[in-house]
Computed example of a mutant assay.
Amino acid sequence: MPSIRPELDLDALARDTYSAVYSDVCDACEMRDQTLSPGARLLAGPGGVLIGWARTAVSLPVTAIPERPYDLEIDFIDSLGLGDVVVMDCSRKPAAAWGELFSTASVGRGARGALIDGYIRDVAKIDDLGRFPVFGRGSRPTDSLGRVSIQSIDIPVSVFGLTVHPNDLIIADRDGVTVVPSRRAVEIVALAKQKATTENSARDLLLAGGYLRDVWTKYRVL
Rank of each mutant, 00 (worst) to 15 (best):
M1V: 12
M1A: 14
P6D: 08
P6E: 07
E7S: 12
E7D: 13
D9H: 08
L10F: 11
L10V: 01
L10H: 02
D11C: 05
D11I: 09
D11P: 02
D16W: 08
D27Y: 08
D27N: 15
D27V: 07
E30V: 13
E30N: 15
Q34I: 07
S37H: 03
S37F: 12
A44G: 10
G45A: 01
G47Q: 11
V49S: 05
S59W: 00
V62S: 00
T63W: 04
E67Y: 04
R68K: 13
R68A: 14
D71V: 06
D75Y: 09
D78R: 14
D84Y: 07
D84E: 10
V85Y: 10
V87L: 15
D89M: 02
D89T: 01
A97H: 04
F102Q: 12
D117S: 14
G118M: 00
R121W: 09
D127T: 02
G136D: 03
R137W: 04
S139E: 14
P141V: 05
R147E: 11
S152P: 00
T163R: 02
R184Y: 11
I188T: 04
V189T: 08
Q194S: 15
T197M: 10
T198S: 13
D204M: 14
L207Q: 13
L207C: 12
K218R: 15
L222D: 08
